[in-house]
Amino acid sequence: MLDLALFLILLTIGYFAGRATEHRHYKSILLREKASLHLPTVTSKMLPEVDQIAKSFLVTGSCVISIDYFKRILAVLRNIIGGRMTAYETLIDRARREAILRMKYEALGSHIIVNTRVETASIFSSASQNGIGSVEVFAYGTAIKLKKKL
């Protein structure tokens, strides 16, 4: 009985707190993405004219995000019937966008980031009882600063 009560309490906390955190995070992501639009981030290796380049350096950004209790239970249920796991999709989406934003933040002052690579790892997952509950996303690329802006 006590177990069930605890479970329901955790579920409720997870639902409300998780939803609030996600909402807040998405709001901040959208805001910062808009603010950083002036810095293009591309996955190609195409370079600007060589004589225009002043400086180039490696930039990185990483983020570990955990899923809330409610969504974890939802995912367990989803595992039974199969299908799209919407609960996990937002988790990974948030982590990726946050990592890319941090990478962009590190590249402040440069004009373009080329060869952006995004890596996802679920390390430390075996420690939690329910298996995967948090992902780490690591983004890196080469920031290029031009002598004068195009």
Partner: peptide, 21 residues
């Protein structure tokens, strides 16, 4: 593990991995 209940960023882990990298 506390943060696992409410979800969100695990800052301790982010820092740890960043330092290791």
């Amino acid at each position: 593990s506390l943060k696992n209940i409410i979800g969100g960023e695990l800052k301790g882990y982010t820092k740890l991995l960043q330092e290791s990298r």
